[in-house]
Computed example of a mutant assay.
Amino acid sequence: MTSKPSVLFVCVHNAGRSQMAAGYLQHLAGDRVTVLSAGSEPGNQVNPVAVQAMAEEGIDISRAVPKILTTGAVRESDVVITMGCGDTCPYFPGKRYEDWVLDDPAGQDIDMVRGVRDDIKNRVQALIRSLDA
């Protein structure tokens, strides 16, 4: 039996995109996947508009706390998904990397954040299919 895959979502502040993606993956894949998220420059709190947008989907990310990205987290992960952190994201050979180009929801209204949320949901569903394959 193989161990369950681990996925690390990384964005700059770990306050919006990466938290929404982690919330979706945890919700949709359950305990089949280990879910991590972090930021190269973590914010003080998760974006309240992102929390609101995810709550509309029945997913509570209100207790999530932005965390600093560590090389250990990258080393432990099978899949690393970056979202706009550019050169600040560490790279380790042998890892599966994806860069998801998503608008930053920081300071945006709920309608804009819903669009980012829905994009993330579609990408997470595709990710789950690829992990299950």
Rank of each mutant, 00 (worst) to 15 (best):
M20N: 10
M20H: 10
M20E: 12
M20A: 11
A21V: 13
A22M: 10
A22S: 14
A22G: 14
G23M: 11
G23A: 14
G23F: 12
G23K: 13
Y24R: 04
Y24S: 02
Y24H: 06
L25T: 11
L25V: 08
L25W: 13
L25K: 09
Q26K: 15
Q26Y: 06
H27I: 02
A29L: 07
G30A: 07
G30C: 11
G30Q: 12
G30N: 04
D31P: 00
D31C: 01
D31A: 15
R32P: 00
R32I: 00
T34D: 13
T34M: 09
T34K: 14
V35R: 02
V35Y: 03
V35C: 04
L36W: 13
L36K: 15
L36H: 14
S37T: 07
S37M: 03
G39C: 03
G39S: 08
S40C: 12
S40A: 05
S40Q: 00
S40P: 00
E41G: 04
E41F: 09
E41W: 04
P42Y: 07
G43M: 06
N44T: 13
N44Y: 14
Q45R: 13
V46F: 10
V46M: 05
P48N: 10
V49R: 12
V49W: 08
V49H: 05
V49N: 02
V49F: 08
A50Q: 11
A50G: 10
V51P: 02
V51W: 08
Q52H: 14
Q52D: 15
Q52K: 13
A53I: 11
M54T: 04
M54P: 02
A55V: 03
A55S: 14
A55R: 12
E56V: 04
E57H: 08
G58N: 04
G58Y: 02
G58P: 02
G58E: 01
G58T: 06
G58W: 09
I59G: 08
I59L: 05
I59H: 06
D60E: 07
I61Q: 02
I61W: 03
S62T: 05
S62P: 01
S62F: 05
S62H: 02
R63D: 13
A64R: 07
A64I: 01
V65W: 00
V65M: 10
V65I: 14
V65A: 06
P66L: 09
P66E: 08
K67C: 02
K67A: 15
K67R: 15
I68P: 05
L69H: 03
L69W: 02
T70R: 05
T70Y: 07
T70N: 07
T71D: 10
T71K: 12
G72E: 15
G72T: 11
A73H: 04
A73I: 06
A73G: 08
V74D: 01
V74T: 05
V74Y: 04
R75W: 10
R75L: 11
E76R: 13
E76F: 04
